[in-house]
């Protein structure tokens, strides 16, 4: 493939921990072939050298939390043929969206010595709330195999393989014994989008939903069952309000539980 034919890739960061960008850099063995197949034109986490747009593919990490973020994401959208969000923050608002249930000014007063320097929006919101998103890659962080699959599919002009079913499929395929049924550990696997390979249950802990809701989540039923087995309402709310707690399905379920409690 001649170098001028290589698609130009840009990677951007908003409010996030950089973990998804690191997952891209963690591709290790595949990174050299990736660099050969695409031109990495803008990726500050990897290199300070940048090339001007427009770009064929923009990967966006992080959520929108400032007025500048809002302007920047619109500019990025204009400059990108295909915009793909990577990770829980960009796709659902991230763990920082917990502030959406509270008064952000109280947090600012508690955390910062000089609150007057902080200019932030009231809410942390997903990229899709502001611009059209062509594809969303879930996870906190994203799964590097899925990231490579998406880029490979884009290069080859085919649909990427990102099954939207529950994490339970992945547990059962690998033979992991259900931690909820066999040990009573609360697990969001039946509500959560697959893609991680059912990592947490294989280490004997419950899924905490970092890939966000699966294709047709039924959180009310799982919550009712957890409550009936003695899990406290506050624990179920906390479980739903994790890294993807501001996603529509998890938010609606945790809000409902909170209303019932009041």
């Amino acid at each position: 493939m001649a170098s001028e034919a290589r698609p130009k890739l840009a990677v951007y960061k908003f409010s996030s921990c950089d973990g998804c960008q690191l997952a891209l850099l963690n591709l290790e063995d595949e990174l050299l072939s990736l660099v050969g197949a695409v031109e990495i034109a803008y990726f500050l986490e990897a290199s300070s050298a940048t090339l001007p747009g427009p770009y064929d593919v923009a990967l966006v990490e992080g959520s929108v939390t400032t007025a500048e973020d809002v302007e920047r994401i619109h500019a990025i959208r204009k400059d990108a043929k295909c915009l793909m969000t990577i990770g829980a923050c960009a796709t659902t608002g991230g763990i920082q969206a917990l502030r959406n249930w509270k008064d952000v000014n109280e947090f600012i007063r508690c955390v910062y010595a000089r609150p007057e320097y902080i200019h932030t929006l009231k809410d942390s919101t997903p990229i899709s709330k502001h611009v059209k998103v062509d594809l969303e890659l879930n996870g906190c962080p994203i799964n590097k195999v899925q990231a490579l699959e998406v880029l490979t599919a884009l290069l080859q002009g085919r649909a990427p393989h990102l099954p939207p079913h529950a994490v339970c499929m992945e547990c059962k395929r690998r033979g992991t014994v259900c931690v909820t049924v066999a040990q009573g550990i609360a697990c969001l696997g039946p509500l959560t989008h697959a893609g991680c390979g059912a990592l947490c249950p294989s280490y004997n802990r419950g899924c905490y939903g970092c890939f966000g809701p699966m294709e047709n989540p039924n959180p009310d039923s799982l919550a009712a069952h957890l409550l009936s087995t003695g899990v406290s309402r506050s624990h179920v709310i906390q479980l739903l309000r994790g890294f993807t707690g501001y996603s529509d399905a998890f938010r609606a379920a945790s809000d409902k539980l909170e209303r019932i409690a009041q």
Partner: peptide, 13 residues
Amino acid sequence: ATRCLSCANCTLV
């Protein structure tokens, strides 16, 4: 359908 999670566990076991 209000209780089923459509998680596929029944079919896999």
